[in-house]
Design a protein around this nucleic acid. Structure first.
Lengths: 246, 246
DNA sequence: CCTGTCGTTTGACAGACGTCAAGCACAACA
DNA sequence: TGTTGTGCTTGACGTCTGTCAAACGACAGG
C-alpha cells in the first residue's frame, strides 16, 4: 500500500494537462485556441490528490498557488479566534480555489475536501507570468476573479434579505444548475455536505435547514433521503426565491 | 434613468494624474517606483464629477471602465426584479469601483454618490494592456480584486453569524479604520449614509440600526447626533465584535 | 450482533428582530 | 416664521429562527 508522501507523483503528462482535460471549457483556459494552449503549457505544475476531510490548505498558510479542481468537491471556511466559524463556499470540478490568498500572500480560509478529490496546482507567479504574454488567459483570469466577487455578492443578498426557506431554495437551485453544467442531472443528486455545513453557509442553524427540507418535502417540491435530493418542482423553488417577502 | 449627460472636461493634466495624486499610496499605483509611474501614464482616461445622489453607473450598463475614487463617498447596491434591494458596499477615496462588471461585461450593481464626488475613469482594456507590460501594476490590480473578495467574505461572516449590535459595531470600527487610513480622525466622523442604507448593508431594518445606536449611546460607547458619530470606547465595540455569542 | 458515534429529525419554548404606528428633529423652502 | 418632507427614534406586538432536548437511523468498529 503506497502512502502518498507529499505531492504524489502523477503519471499524467502535465505538459498537455489542459488540452486533454475535459473540463477545459469550464475552467481557466476557457475559450483559448490551439496556439494559446501551446503557450499555457506548464501552467499546471502538479496534480494533488486530497482525501475526504483533508485540507488542501489552511487559513494562514503562505499563498503560493491557486488550485483548479479536476475531480471532487470542496468547502472553504473561516474560523475566527472567538470561535465563530462559517462556510464561505462550496466548490466543484472546474472551479478555482485560493483566489482570496492573493491580497495578503496568505490563505484567508481553509479548503477542505468533502470527497476524495484531485486538483491542479497552478503556481501563482507562473500564472501571472504567462498572463502577461497570453492575453486571453489574463482576460479569463480577471473574469474568474470578478465572477467570485459577483458570487459573493449574491450570497450577501441571500444572507441579508432572504428567509430560511428562500435561502435553502436558492442554494439548491444553484447546486442544481452547477451539476447540470457539468453534465449531471439537474433534478437528482447527492449532497456532499452535512446539514450543519449547509446551515453555516446559509447563516442558519442545522435544525432550521432540516425543517426547511421537511417542509419542501411535505409540499412535494422535492424528496430527501439522507443526502440524496430529488427536485420534483423546480419552479416552486424558483418562485420561493423570486418572491419578495411582504 | 438619469445618466450624466457627458463627461465634463477637466483642467487636470491626466498625463501626470497619478504622480500628483496624494492618494497614490492607497490606490491602484500603490508601491510603484518612478519608472513605473512613467509607464502607467495614460491609465487615467478622464475624471468625472458625480453629484450627490447621482449614479456613476447602473446595473446592466455595459462595462467599459473601472473607477478610482479621488474625492467623495459612494454606495453600491443591487435591486432585483422582485423588489429586493440591498446595499453591497460603501466606498471611499482611494477605493476602486466596478470590479464586479468584469465577469459579464455589464455592471452588476448600481454605484451612487452619497456626496459630491470625483472619480478617475480607467478604461479596462487599457488597464489590461498596461498590466501586461508593468508587472507591479498587474500584481497590484490582482491584489485589489482579491481584497474585494476578502472584504465580501468578511461581510458574509458578519451577515451569517453576528447579531444586530455586533454587526453595527463591526461596521463602525471598519469605517473608523478606513477614515484613519485617510488621515481623518478615527473617533469622530460623519456618516454619509442613512440608517436605512446601513441597515440594508448589514441585513437589518432601519429601526434595529437605530435601536442599536441608542443602546451604544446609553452604554457610553459613543455619542450619536444625527449623522455625527463620536466613538468614546472603541475597545467596548471591539469586544462586542470579538465575542462569540453564546 | 451489539454498541457507540454521528448526522438528522422533530418538538417545545424563548428571544431577537421585524412590523406597524406614532411622534420628533432637523433642513429646505416659501 | 410657518410649512412640509425626510430621516430618525421609540413603543407595542408578532413571528421567525435559535436553543435545548429527546429520539431515531445509518454506519463503523469491536
Amino acid at each position: 500500500m503506497n502512502k502518498p508522501a507529499t505531492i504524489p507523483a502523477t503519471p499524467v503528462n502535465l505538459r498537455t494537462a489542459c488540452i486533454q482535460c475535459n473540463l477545459r471549457e469550464l475552467c481557466l483556459p476557457m475559450g483559448l485556441d490551439a496556439n494559446e494552449f501551446e503557450e499555457i503549457d506548464g501552467l499546471i505544475a502538479a496534480r494533488r490528490r486530497i482525501k475526504r476531510q483533508q485540507h488542501l490548505y489552511h487559513a494562514g498558510d503562505p499563498f503560493e498557488a491557486i488550485y483548479a479542481i479536476r475531480i471532487g468537491f470542496f468547502k472553504t471556511d473561516i474560523l475566527t479566534e472567538d470561535g465563530r466559524d462559517q462556510v464561505t463556499g462550496f466548490q466543484m470540478a472546474g472551479e478555482i480555489l485560493g483566489l482570496d490568498g492573493i491580497s495578503t500572500d496568505r490563505h484567508v480560509c481553509n479548503a477542505v475536501a468533502l470527497e476524495d478529490s484531485d486538483v491542479c496546482l497552478i503556481p501563482f507567479d507562473r500564472l501571472e507570468d504567462i498572463s502577461r504574454r497570453v492575453e486571453p488567459l489574463q482576460r479569463q483570469f480577471n473574469r474568474f476573479m470578478s465572477r467570485e466577487i459577483v458570487r459573493e455578492q449574491s450570497i450577501m443578498m441571500l444572507l441579508g434579505s432572504m428567509r430560511a426557506e428562500e435561502r435553502l431554495a436558492a442554494f439548491l437551485l444553484n447546486l442544481s444548475q452547477r451539476m447540470q453544467l457539468r453534465g449531471y442531472s439537474a433534478s437528482e443528486f447527492n449532497l456532499r455536505m452535512t446539514r450543519e455545513e449547509i446551515g453555516s453557509y446559509l447563516g442558519l442553524k442545522l435544525e432550521t435547514v432540516s425543517r426547511a427540507f421537511s417542509k419542501f418535502q411535505e409540499e412535494q417540491m422535492l424528496t430527501v433521503h439522507q443526502k440524496h435530493i430529488q427536485i420534483l418542482d423546480p419552479d416552486a423553488l424558483r418562485s420561493l426565491v423570486g418572491r419578495a417577502h411582504l
